[in-house]
Amino acid sequence: MSPTVPIYVAISISEGVYKHWGIFIDASGKEDKILLQVAGSDGRFRYEMETTDVRQSERLVELFHLYDVDVSKINSIKTIASQVTVHNEIRGWNCQDYVLDLLEALEKEAIVNNKDAGYKTQKDSLQGKQEGLA
């Protein structure tokens, strides 16, 4: 069996109204720990990939485990993350929407098995944490 690496949603306190979300790939090497996110503000978000261990951030409030992925899929995840559309034309679209859009893209590309009961439970739970939904 190939080695796996845990994938989390890093939930942090932000400057804005809502908590900040990003996908954290918790690889074993310090230089391999990656945060995939959009940064900015309403209408001005941009994609960012940051090499960091989010556990070191004082702003981190929760590391939400989603699933474990085969190490060989990390580059595909990074590529897909950079290609997810940043919807600056949609008022109120934010980093939380980006994370959910990225998960949909990973499911579509079969990087994540959306039939896996554990993953589905975690994703449903994550969607319940999304803020600003009326």
Rank of each mutant, 00 (worst) to 15 (best):
P3Q: 12
P3K: 12
P3L: 15
T4H: 08
T4F: 04
V5E: 01
V5R: 04
I7D: 00
I7P: 01
Y8H: 14
A10N: 03
A10R: 00
I11H: 05
I11M: 11
I11E: 01
S12G: 06
I13E: 07
I13Q: 13
E15V: 03
V17F: 13
V17M: 11
H20T: 08
W21P: 01
G22L: 01
I23E: 00
I23G: 00
I25M: 09
I25N: 01
D26H: 13
D26C: 03
A27W: 04
A27N: 05
A27T: 06
S28M: 04
G29D: 15
E31C: 10
E31Y: 12
D32N: 06
L35D: 03
L35Y: 08
L35P: 02
L36C: 14
G43K: 13
F45Q: 03
R46Y: 09
Y47A: 02
E48T: 06
E50G: 00
T51A: 09
T52F: 05
T52E: 08
D53P: 02
D53Y: 05
V54Y: 04
R55W: 06
R55M: 13
R55L: 07
Q56V: 01
Q56G: 01
E58S: 07
E58T: 07
R59G: 00
V61R: 08
E62G: 00
E62I: 01
L63W: 09
F64M: 02
H65S: 13
H65E: 14
H65L: 15
L66Q: 07
Y67M: 06
Y67I: 12
D68Y: 13
V69K: 02
D70Y: 10
D70P: 04
V71Y: 06
S72K: 08
S72A: 11
S72V: 03
K73D: 11
K73A: 10
I74W: 04
I74N: 04
N75T: 13
N75H: 11
S76T: 12
K78P: 04
K78F: 04
T79L: 14
A81H: 01
A81Q: 02
Q83H: 09
V84Y: 05
V84H: 05
V86I: 11
H87V: 07
I90C: 02
G92E: 13
N94P: 03
N94E: 08
C95T: 08
D97E: 06
Y98D: 04
V99P: 02
L100P: 00
L100H: 06
L100A: 12
L102E: 06
L102M: 11
L103D: 01
E104C: 05
L106C: 11
K108Y: 13
A110Q: 15
I111W: 09
K115P: 02
K115A: 14
G118V: 06
K120V: 14
T121Q: 15
T121N: 11
Q122A: 15
D124N: 14
S125L: 15
L126E: 09
Q127Y: 08
Q127R: 15
G128N: 13
K129A: 08
K129W: 09
G132S: 08
A134N: 10
